[in-house]
Design a binder for these strands. Structure first.
Lengths: 173, 173
DNA sequence: CGAGGTCGGTTCGGTCGGTGAACCGTCTGC
DNA sequence: GCAGACGGTTCACCGACCGAACCGACCTCG
């Protein structure tokens, strides 16, 4: 789509938001960043999108201050969510919840736990055990009942994403 | 974009959601539906999108059971949010809030009030006056400090959307 | 009843973005 | 030093989007 390079004239916060994260693939890239994906190749193999598009999207997200390009190990760059990027979490969480509600007859694809006490989080991010709003960084993402088993031979990124792990932490490599 | 006709292989609730509402214009159409827009021509004039695209999007939303095509006055059809469509509100609200937080230096574009007591709603939809979660149908949408004044000569739909009114109710014509 | 206007929608040609595969230079690990 | 991994670019093809013109059904008014 030219999804959102601009929604000209739309004096609306939603239109402005979609100019940033409304293009094809963009929200999936951001979601993966929440789940710990950080390197170009990891995004490419997990999402299976054309590399030229990935280059374009990452640059746009850095430009918009949603991701930051930071030097990683061995001089390879990594992409890391900024504070602005992390603040997108409630919106992404809501969209996932809607998808689970409507298209996951066997239950949600993923669950979220409070890292400190293991309590399950509701869709607003409140812990069932301690009844407190949990920041994303203290959240563990884990496969839910609706997440089918991945194909026998899956790439290492998909495998790493399918086991419980702390959000925002780089995937083990 | 082929935005989301399919994100093949993505066993993820977010990808599934974006297949439905991730294409260019789709979420803006749904937002307008929340604000009371119901007729083909109203969507077309307010959004300024190609009519062929609007035809396509409305059909897809009806097919996905987000909108329902109902007979209106004088045999003209109207498009109305279904229960499934209404349940998209938290996600849309979150995306708008993010846009306001990051790109509205003078304050939010819109405010939401509890229709019964006039209390201001926070971004989770809780009323500051009575401290209860307010359903969308009991919400009034009103211009906020960040919403610039529309151009002198604005179309009637834009004008109607710029004054406080109950959500989900058809716009006065 | 006939003319003009409104409305919902389709058609069409031009343009733009996405797709997928091949290619390239740098860096890493052995 | 060499082979492979990695991040990124290039290119040709294709489908979606854009904008304007067109169309038929219905409404309104004289």
């Amino acid at each position: 789509m030219v999804l959102p390079r601009d929604y000209s004239g739309q004096a609306c916060a939603l239109a402005r938001t979609l100019e940033i994260v409304g293009e094809r693939w963009t929200l999936l890239i951001v979601r993966d960043a929440f789940f710990g994906v950080r390197r170009f190749g990891e995004f490419a193999t997990h999402l299976g999108l054309p590399r030229a598009v990935l280059t374009d999207r990452l640059a746009a997200l850095v430009e918009a201050d949603v991701l930051a390009k930071v030097p990683g190990t061995g001089r390879r760059a990594e992409y890391e969510l900024t504070e602005r990027g992390v603040s997108l979490w409630p919106a992404i969480r809501s969209l996932m919840a809607w998808g689970d509600d409507n298209y996951a007859p066997t239950g949600p694809h993923r669950e979220f736990w409070h890292a400190q006490d293991g309590g399950v989080l509701d869709r607003d991010g409140r812990c069932a055990a301690c009844d407190v709003l949990i920041p994303v960084a203290d959240t563990v993402v884990a496969p839910g009942p609706g997440l089918g088993t991945p194909p026998e031979v899956a790439d290492p990124v998909t495998v790493a994403l399918t086991r419980p792990h702390r959000m925002l932490r780089p995937l083990p490599r």
